[in-house]
């Protein structure tokens, strides 16, 4: 019931397939860029994760080795249309976690780089929350477009 309601809310906005393609290109492109910029220097990314002061060093290290590749794979799949809904859901999950981390970091008053785009990263601030929220909106739209089609066909 909840899913159905959620899909209806998103369904009003996402029926236009050209807008959905644009969303896929934007979200996929951003995550490919973000992933590649972190793949170039995994140790720098590991340090960026550690700077959030949430995860122990070991977890930061292994997340830094694997996460950028998942981002790139999801980005490519999203653009090519392979497993697009699974990719959109995974990226939505990542963005939700990023949003929580960024918000917590601002509240705790820690002044660090976000680590989002490797060496081109910006500081953790409210602008970043806005950017991530927009991307989350796009990726959730892509995910719920699948659900709404299913609900409609029932």
């Amino acid at each position: 019931m909840e899913r159905r309601r959620a899909s209806c809310i998103f369904g009003k906005m996402i029926r236009n397939k050209y807008i959905l393609i644009a969303f896929r290109l934007v979200v996929g492109g951003v995550f490919i860029w973000a992933g590649v910029s972190k793949i170039i220097d995994p140790l720098e990314f590991a340090q960026n994760i550690a700077n959030y002061r949430v995860f122990p060093a070991g977890i930061s290290f292994f997340v830094a080795l694997v996460l950028p590749w998942i981002e790139v794979i999801c980005g490519v799949f999203l653009i090519l249309g392979i497993f697009r809904y699974a990719s959109a859901l995974l990226l939505s999950g990542f963005l939700a976690v990023f949003l929580v981390l960024i918000t917590a970091t601002i509240i705790r008053g820690i002044d660090i780089d976000c680590g989002c785009f490797g060496s081109l990263s910006t500081k953790v601030d409210y602008k970043l929350i806005l950017e991530d929220s927009i991307l989350l909106f796009f990726s959730l739209n892509i995910y719920f477009s699948h659900k709404s089609v299913r609900v409609k066909s029932k």
């Binding site: 080795l65 996460l67 590749w69 998942i70 794979i73 497993f83 699974a86 859901l89 995974l90």
Partner: peptide, 24 residues
């Protein structure tokens, strides 16, 4: 759907750890 998610995660894990094997 869950299999697709697992496949993506597994692919990322294998490539990430494989390419950075010297760091591991």
């Amino acid at each position: 759907f869950l299999l697709q998610i697992a496949f993506i995660l597994f692919l990322g894990l294998i490539i990430g750890l494989g390419i950075n094997f010297s760091l591991v």
